[in-house]
Amino acid sequence: MHNDSPFWCVQGIIYGFLGPNGAGKSTLIQILTTLMLPTEGHVHVAGYDVVHHPNQVRSNIGVALQDTGVDPMLTGRELLQIQGRLFNLSRPEAKSRATSLLSQFGLEEAADKRIRTYSGGMRRRLDLALALVHQPPILFLDEPTTGLAPVNRTALWKLLQAVQKQTGVTVFLTTQYLEEADALCDNIGIIHQGQMIAEDSPQTLKRRLERDVIELEPAHTSDLNPLLQRIGSTYEAAQDRNVIRVFTPHGASAIGQVLADVSAIGVELAGLKVAPPTIDMCFLS
């Protein structure tokens, strides 16, 4: 990442890091979690230099990477206890912490079964529990819900929000799901080609666009081109599959004129929506 200005993550929030593939999100996570050395500059996490004091950094962070790093031959309880011991917990402490986490993450029933029998969602929850064994003040999550079914994804969001609220842990996550960042994060940083191009709350990022989006879906796809030409002569408009998006500073005021244009060229609409911009649109802009 080529950005000389430092960025700060406020304590006790969920910070989302978004960017297209190849933007450097995973590399940044690897550097912040001491898995990779930075090629230049200085990186501090929890006040410790990741190059010179990696063990202090490791003691202060919990990490769940894209690929769940679990040993399938052990049980969930055993793995949590081992993790606890490696983070300096005594045997009784590790045992008690494992029991408490298994309960918190809904894994009591599977606690003594080998991890190879766990579903993808269970493995994710266990991975998250492993990251929290030592009650770290900072939690790094690299695309925590990638590959999960939508229902599991939503469940994990709720779990993550509950854990964050309960523990006050600072969460730093990367995601390719923009709706995830929108739903979870207090602050979002957007990286593109190695540069931080925007950083703010999801609401402010959306407000920055200062416009609404009117989505028009013609009943016949043959009407897409004429509709785009007609609307595009007055407003900023773009086609996305079978929908024409019209960008306007105030959707409610513009909708009358837009519908008049639609009617003037005799296009029948199958769908119409006026909505505030999504994070996707922040990206696209």
Binding site: P6, W8, Q11, A46, G47, S59, L86, P137, I138, T170
Partner: peptide, 30 residues
């Protein structure tokens, strides 16, 4: 690039070689 996060007071955990060796060896045997 420079990344900074809030400084958090936390006791540094020293590497306990023998404990780590025992825990990891036990796990490998298991």
């Amino acid at each position: 690039m420079s990344v900074s996060m809030p400084s958090l007071e936390r006791e540094q955990i020293r590497a306990h070689f023998w404990r780590d060796l025992m825990v990891l060896t036990n796990r490998s045997i298991q």
